Computed example of a mutant assay.
Amino acid sequence: MKNVGEAPREELAAGTRFEQKWDHSTRNRVARSILDHGPSTVADLAARLGLTQAAVRRHLDTLVSDRVVEARDKRVYGARGRGRPAKVFALTDCGRDAFDQSYDTLAADALRWIERTAGGGAAGEAAVAAFARDRMETQAESYRRAVEAAAPEERTEALAKALSADGYAATARSAPAPQRGEQLCQHHCPVAHVAEQYPQLCEAETEVFSRLLGTHVQRLATIAHGDGVCTTFIPRNDSTPHGKAPYNRPPRGSAPTHGTRQTTTPTASASTAGRNPA
């Protein structure tokens, strides 16, 4: 029996969601104010945002717990008065990274400079591909250790976990019938906006996956091309011997063959025009 004055459970849940959303929005305003104005005291933030100091402290406690901001002693210039110096709150590196800092624009500009400096055209594309390959080979060292430490049938899963540690939110699963193999799915791509302009980044990644897993792979979909998930098909290769996966790292700075494919190792298939079948 419902007590008099008791709100329905659905209304209570809706109220909780609203409060959480409001809190999150206000917390972002607090962090943004620190970004725009620099290290700030509780009083500074309260005055700028039209909040009580108690409310500001509550949001700051959460931001400090999440390592978005940190408390520091306020720097005093000239003669120092009595009492403890006021605390100011500043963004951490993690908190600063949460805001748009135009890294994508910087990366795209750098690749554009490489392409133009190499002469443009095919030579420029080859220079960008060489950079993409060298970058990916360096990044793949930790992936290689993870894959080589795994049993042959667990290598795709090991690669997915290593990618997730780098922020790619990757998973491995059996491919849908009638395909015989697995799908490596990357639900996030930190360089997706740049890869829209320079697909050499995706191609270099696919080639590395091929060498790490010791078999040809096929890129079915990419976030950079507008798909929801980067999906790579890894066919089942029962002939791969137990032990280490065959991984042959090309010499650093080596020029790619046409289309940036490798011919000395199991070759990654080109990205297809089809979309994610999942």
Score class of each variant (00 low, 15 high):
233 F>Q: 01
185 C>V: 13
163 L>A: 06
23 D>A: 13
143 Y>F: 15
105 T>L: 14
31 A>S: 13
144 R>E: 11
120 G>K: 05
182 E>F: 02
57 R>S: 13
278 A>P: 00
188 H>T: 10
234 I>L: 12
255 A>C: 01
158 A>G: 04
265 T>S: 02
141 E>V: 10
223 I>H: 04
132 A>F: 09
178 P>E: 06
3 N>Y: 06
223 I>T: 06
54 A>F: 05
120 G>V: 05
207 E>F: 00
93 D>G: 10
200 Q>N: 09
89 F>D: 01
24 H>S: 13
60 L>C: 03
42 V>Q: 12
106 L>P: 00
147 V>Q: 05
48 R>C: 00
256 P>G: 10
216 H>Q: 11
201 L>S: 04
54 A>Q: 13
158 A>V: 08
237 N>M: 05
277 P>G: 05
198 Y>C: 03
43 A>L: 09
209 F>A: 02
26 T>E: 11
45 L>I: 07
276 N>D: 15
229 V>R: 11
110 A>I: 05
223 I>A: 03
255 A>S: 12
130 A>G: 09
40 S>M: 13
38 G>L: 07
1 M>P: 10
186 Q>S: 14
140 A>N: 05
199 P>N: 09
201 L>P: 06
7 A>P: 08
29 R>K: 11
258 H>I: 11
122 A>I: 08
240 T>F: 01
55 A>T: 15
169 A>L: 12
52 T>H: 10
6 E>Y: 03
102 S>N: 12
210 S>T: 01
2 K>R: 15
166 D>G: 03
205 E>Y: 05
203 E>D: 10
127 A>H: 05
138 T>M: 10
15 G>H: 06
214 G>A: 01
176 P>E: 08
108 A>G: 12
53 Q>N: 10
35 L>E: 11
248 N>P: 00
8 P>L: 03
218 Q>V: 09
55 A>Y: 03
197 Q>R: 14
177 A>V: 07
259 G>I: 07
72 R>G: 03
227 D>A: 15
117 T>M: 08
215 T>D: 03
199 P>Q: 07
101 Q>F: 11
8 P>W: 05
84 R>G: 00
177 A>I: 01
1 M>N: 08
156 T>A: 14
2 K>V: 14
24 H>L: 11
64 V>N: 03
245 A>N: 02
32 R>Q: 12
53 Q>H: 05
102 S>V: 04
126 A>D: 15
24 H>P: 00
177 A>Q: 11
17 R>V: 12
94 C>I: 11
39 P>M: 06
200 Q>E: 15
275 R>T: 14
68 V>T: 15
223 I>L: 07
35 L>P: 00
25 S>A: 15
244 K>I: 02
213 L>Y: 02
72 R>E: 14
227 D>L: 03
276 N>W: 09
242 H>T: 12
150 A>Y: 04
238 D>I: 04
139 Q>K: 12
49 L>R: 05
168 Y>G: 02
248 N>T: 14
277 P>V: 04
120 G>R: 07
43 A>R: 14
40 S>W: 01
18 F>A: 15
264 T>K: 04
278 A>Y: 13
129 A>K: 09
224 A>D: 08
231 T>R: 15
179 Q>G: 00
114 I>H: 10
199 P>E: 07
7 A>D: 08
211 R>I: 00
58 R>H: 08
275 R>K: 09
10 E>Y: 09
260 T>Q: 08
253 G>R: 06
166 D>F: 02
14 A>I: 07
